[in-house]
């Protein structure tokens, strides 16, 4: 199998909270658990810090999928940031529906710091899902424009 060309691969932005999700991602590394390179992590202090605007802007810039990852329910380092993240993800999903970008492209993942394997699995699953969905209409439009300009 030929190696996939990075440009044709979906791009998935993962906003990861410092205390759990980002640590879990590091753990996955320490345990050498592979997951697709499509997932690009942006570190935030808490999943509750992820603004609806950030999620939307990621899609606007061309993300094919967005993952907001925080601590397990009841485990948020900042009490309830993860529950807020859940609500915000739902809000943005409704907005995506309106825009015509599949809301299933946005996902919430709750994971604890020790769960490197869960993070890796989630990264694999969302990549698979987004691959199956194909590029987001926005990233397609952006690519088409870039082609036209070129």
């Amino acid at each position: 199998m030929a190696a996939p060309t990075p440009e044709l691969e979906p791009v998935i932005v993962a906003f990861c909270c410092h205390y759990c999700a980002y640590t879990a991602a590091d753990q996955a590394g320490a345990q050498r658990l592979e997951y697709p390179s499509n997932v690009k992590i942006v570190r935030v202090p808490c999943s509750g810090k992820v603004d609806a605007l950030h999620m939307l802007r990621a899609f606007e810039r061309g993300a094919d999928g967005v993952l907001v990852a925080g601590c397990l329910e009841g485990d948020c380092h900042f009490s309830t940031g993860n529950l807020r993240a859940r609500k915000k993800v739902a809000q943005v999903q409704r907005l995506l529906e309106e825009i015509g970008v599949g809301p299933e492209r946005l996902e919430l993942l709750l994971v604890s710091a020790g769960m490197g394997s869960n993070f890796a699995r989630a990264a694999r699953e969302i990549t698979q899902k987004i691959r199956a969905l194909g590029p987001s209409p926005i990233s397609e439009a952006i690519a088409a424009r870039a082609m036209n300009r070129a």
């Binding site: 605007l53 939307l56 802007r57 606007e60 907005l95 825009i99 970008v101 209409p137 952006i142």
Partner: peptide
């Protein structure tokens, strides 16, 4: 910001 983003995406689409 959210509306701008949403409009931009819709228009791009």
């Amino acid at each position: 910001g959210l509306l701008a983003s949403a409009l931009n995406m819709s228009m791009l689409k």
